[in-house]
Computed example of a mutant assay.
Amino acid sequence: MKNLLLLVLSMVAVAREATAQDTECVRERAAMVENIRTYARSDASVLGQQGLSESVLEAMGRTKRHLFIPERSCSIAYADSPVSIGQGQTISQPFIVALMTELAAVAPDHVVLEVGTGSGYQAAILAHLARKVCTVEIIPSLAEAAAKTLKELAYDNVSVRLGDGYAGWPECGPFDAIVVTAALGQVPPPLIEQLKVGGRLVMPVGAAYTTQHLTVVEKIAPDQTTTRAVALVRFVPFTRSKD
């Protein structure tokens, strides 16, 4: 009887701690969204006076970023800074995630490709906005962990694939939007091929370990695209298969 009482008290304590953390995370996440909104409006050169769309801000507010980082810490997760996820990889600061999502112009009926799954956070944001998200990760441990997290959080419209994202994911496309979360000196031709006419590709273009240009490529005809640089960013290098 004593052991049962101790077990019940322990469960109550754990539940209270979890509730306290959830309350803290809700507060921190709401503050993060307001910071993103303010920052977007203060820099009209990138998004114009309208800033970020409410749909993107809502997706940022609904996604539990702290569950996509190793520390599971609210204060770390919702600060406006990148977070290391191991294997030399990071998830971008919240504003950059929101900006790339906005630039991709994702709609509810869209099929979206993400190259560079990482922890699965950007895929989760996209999943709130799109019909289907296909995401490719080259590092096995990250792909496995992201797939597990996304499944546990019931992101049923996200599929994770282990592989070299340079080749895209033809079987999952064609795509209305493509988001690449690592820097490369040029846009991979296979990704342009898999992009629908009228679709957008968003990625950092430039050399590794230096400042890159966050770039938007729009496919305006089967063999024609337009390209514009939006902002200066700094991303981890695009990892390729050695085969």
Rank of each mutant, 00 (worst) to 15 (best):
G199A: 11
C74S: 03
K2G: 00
L201A: 04
E24R: 05
G86P: 00
C134F: 10
S73D: 15
Q122C: 09
P188M: 01
T239V: 15
K64E: 14
V136H: 05
A182R: 05
R65W: 09
V111I: 13
P140S: 12
S159C: 04
P204A: 10
F235W: 04
T117V: 04
L99N: 03
L67C: 00
V216C: 08
K151N: 08
V111L: 09
A207Q: 12
R16N: 14
L5W: 09
T225L: 13
A105H: 14
Q186M: 11
V160W: 05
P70S: 01
F68P: 03
A31V: 12
A79N: 07
G198C: 05
M60V: 11
A229V: 13
H128M: 08
N3G: 00
E193M: 06
D80A: 09
I178V: 15
V233G: 06
W169K: 10
A208R: 09
S10N: 10
G86A: 06
L153V: 03
Q224Y: 11
P204N: 06
A177H: 03
Y155A: 02
P204L: 06
R161G: 02
Y155T: 02
T23K: 11
L9P: 01
L129I: 01
M60P: 11
G185Q: 13
R41Q: 11
R41W: 03
Q122G: 06
A13I: 12
T226V: 14
V217H: 11
T149I: 13
E144D: 13
Q87C: 08
D43H: 14
L113E: 01
I76Q: 11
L99K: 04
V112W: 14
Q89M: 05
T63R: 02
R65C: 10
R161E: 14
V12G: 00
T210I: 01
S84K: 02
V187D: 03
Q89Y: 00
I36K: 07
L113K: 12
A143Y: 01
T135Y: 04
K242D: 13
R37S: 08
T149P: 00
L7T: 09
S42H: 06
A221I: 07
L150P: 06
S119M: 09
I138N: 04
L9T: 11
M60I: 15
S84E: 12
L150A: 04
A177I: 07
E114K: 05
G165R: 07
L7Q: 08
D109S: 15
L142C: 07
G116H: 01
V33C: 11
Q89L: 01
D176H: 15
K2P: 00
A44T: 15
G86V: 07
I139C: 11
D43C: 01
V111N: 13
A107N: 15
A98N: 09
P94L: 02
V106G: 10
D243N: 10
I139S: 08
Q194A: 14
R29H: 05
Q49G: 12
L195V: 12
K148W: 07
L184E: 02
I192R: 12
P188S: 07
R161A: 14
M60C: 14
V136Y: 03
Y121H: 05
N3A: 13
D164R: 09
L126R: 08
K148D: 11
K151H: 10
W169S: 09
L232I: 03
K219V: 01
T181R: 04
